[in-house]
């Protein structure tokens, strides 16, 4: 589905941000990318939809190498890749509905986009997604009237309405409180699984990564130093990624607890959303 081959990125000044990163995601799974600040997580995820141009290597989505696409082809390709940001990056002066529908911009003509005439099925999808992320009734609110958690829900809806073949998620919870963070991660992971969308999530919080992801990729100084199922994360691996530290309190101890949490999450999401 997605394959990165020897992706490198050098910025004009400074050391290599990414050094020969290769990995495959060949089934719809949630992959958490962890690593210290400056390890290249953001650069990596942006190299995939070329918000950052990789210096070297290939990014294959299906059969297509994204790196070799021209501008027009890249725009078409980006319609298939949803992206969610740390700072939500909603257009604050637009309504929630406009923000969600902007995920469909790649599919409507300029004139229709200007008159806000999106196809009825897009609007139906938007309403459904707003309900799914717990924001029913907010479609006419301006984005800057929402709380952080609510904005991120809109951000999720905007990315998911693209019906993407791949979801890129850049630090979705870094600006949110712990409770909201868990709710947001839960919504994300549920949507990814429901829609069989492979998902890459950059995330600082190791225990969130472990709780919600199927697989973890550890990045350090621009190189992959760990790639394996989330359950394999241990103190030795964390030391390899982050360096020496007492990791005993970070690693998830009770698997049953987090599993039951995931199941409960399904019911909680809608109720908690109004508060978040």
């Amino acid at each position: 589905m997605l394959e990165l081959k020897n992706i490198s990125k050098e910025y004009p000044k400074g050391p290599k941000a990414l050094d020969n990163v290769s990995f495959r995601v060949d089934k719809p799974q949630v992959v958490a990318i962890i690593g210290p600040s400056g390890a290249g997580k953001s650069t990596l995820i942006r190299c995939i939809n070329r918000l950052v141009e990789p210096s070297n290597g290939q990014v294959l989505l299906g059969e297509t190498d994204i790196v070799s696409l021209n501008k027009k082809e890249l725009r078409k390709m980006r319609r298939r890749i949803g992206m969610i940001f740390q700072e939500y990056n909603l257009v604050e002066r637009l309504t929630v509905m406009e923000n969600v529908l902007s995920g469909r911009l790649g599919y409507v003509s300029l004139w229709k986009a200007y008159r806000r005439k999106f196809p009825p099925q897009d609007i139906r999808d938007a309403f459904e997604l707003l309900e799914r992320v717990g924001l029913s009734g907010t479609q006419n609110s301006r984005a800057d009237a929402l709380s952080g958690g609510q904005r991120q829900r809109v951000g999720i809806a905007r990315a998911v309405i693209q019906a993407p073949d791949l979801l890129l998620v850049d630090e979705p919870t870094a600006s949110l409180d712990p409770k909201t963070s868990r709710q947001i991660m839960r919504i994300l992971v549920e949507l990814a699984h429901e829609r069989h969308t492979p998902t890459l999530i950059n995330i600082h919080d190791v225990s969130l990564a472990q709780t919600f992801s199927d697989r973890i990729i550890g990045l350090c100084d621009g190189s992959v130093v760990f790639d394996g199922p989330s359950s394999q994360l241990n103190a030795e691996v964390l030391t390899r990624i982050y360096g020496e530290e007492d990791w005993s309190t970070t690693i998830r101890k009770d698997d049953d607890e987090s599993r039951s949490k995931q199941e409960r999450g399904q019911k909680d999401v809608r109720g908690e959303a109004a508060a978040g």
């Binding site: 939809n49 918000l51 725009r75 078409k76 390709m77 980006r78 319609r79 298939r80 890749i81 949803g82 992206m83 940001f85 990056n89 909603l90 257009v91 902007s102 995920g103 469909r104 911009l105 790649g106 951000g155 905007r158 693209q162 890129l168």
Partner: peptide
């Protein structure tokens, strides 16, 4: 903000 809209393929 610009990145987010560009990322949708606009």
């Amino acid at each position: 903000h610009l990145d987010a809209i560009r990322a949708t393929g606009a």
